Amino acid sequence: MNTRWKPSATVAAIIERDGRYLLVEEHTPEGLRLNNPAGHLDPGESPEQGVARETLEETAHRFTPTALVGIYLSRFQRPATGEDITYLRFAYCGELGDFDVQRDLDTGIVRTLWMTPDELRECPERHRSPLVQRCIDDHQAGHRFPLNTVHTDPSVQRKG
């Protein structure tokens, strides 16, 4: 059988304030892990809409992307099941907005925390993937691309 390979499209927010980066601590099949606020792109949304939604769901903060930090491809093989997943990640930096005190964090998110790049570098075994550190390193290196680097055709948002 000829099966087409389909990587999972994900989005991530790279949010820095005073030398610290906003991270989430979340339950995964591999245990408690650290990640950038991130998740899967939903049908009918642009990557910019997806990263704003995921950041709100995982941190209870509004987020407005202002630049693309990078596009990343990574492969993960789940130790427990052998599942082989390839992720295509669009990482954005931007403006962190208001905190919604009434909003619960997404299922599986234990807490948010702010860490320096060095603090994060000291615990690679706790990273959800190698992309957590790579995105922060790229942000620190000044990687910024205009939002229109990624074009979402209007057909994406059409129903049916």
Score class of each variant (00 low, 15 high):
L34K: 01
L105E: 03
R121H: 15
S155N: 15
R144L: 05
D138Y: 08
N2W: 10
V69L: 14
D98P: 10
H139P: 00
P65I: 14
W5D: 08
M1W: 09
G142V: 11
E119D: 15
A60C: 13
A91D: 04
Q140C: 14
C123V: 15
P47Q: 00
I109G: 04
L147V: 07
H143D: 11
N36F: 05
Q49K: 10
P146D: 11
R144H: 07
V132G: 04
E30V: 08
Q133P: 03
Y87N: 02
V11F: 06
C123L: 12
P37T: 02
L41T: 11
Q140A: 13
Q157G: 14
P130I: 04
T3M: 03
Q102W: 07
N35P: 01
Y72K: 09
L113S: 11
L68T: 09
N35C: 02
A12P: 00
D98G: 12
T116L: 10
P79T: 12
H143W: 11
F90P: 00
S8D: 11
H143L: 09
V156I: 08
Q133T: 07
A67M: 10
V110C: 01
R4I: 10
A38Y: 03
Q102L: 13
H143V: 08
L73N: 11
G50K: 03
G19E: 03
L56E: 13
Y87I: 02
D98W: 11
L73H: 09
T152P: 05
M115Q: 07
A67F: 15
Q157L: 12
G19D: 02
L120E: 11
R128F: 02
D42M: 07
T3V: 02
L23F: 03
T55Q: 04
P47I: 00
D104S: 12
Q49I: 05
D137I: 09
F76S: 06
T152Y: 13
R33E: 04
A67W: 12
E58P: 07
I85T: 07
K159G: 13
E25M: 05
L32V: 02
T116A: 07
P29W: 00
S46G: 14
H127Q: 08
I85D: 09
D106F: 04
A12D: 02
E45L: 13
E58V: 10
G97W: 08
G142F: 15
M1C: 07
E125F: 08
T152S: 14
P47S: 01
E25W: 01
P37I: 04
A141W: 10
A141Q: 13
P79C: 09
V132R: 06
P47M: 00
R128L: 08
R33W: 05
D98T: 14
E95L: 15
L22E: 01
E30P: 08
L68F: 14
R89N: 06
L120I: 12
V51Y: 03
R121T: 14
R4D: 12
G31Q: 00
V156T: 05
L73Q: 08
S8T: 12
Q157H: 13
P29F: 00
I85E: 05
D42C: 04
D137K: 10
L32D: 04
H143P: 09
T10H: 03
S46H: 15
R103H: 09
A60L: 09
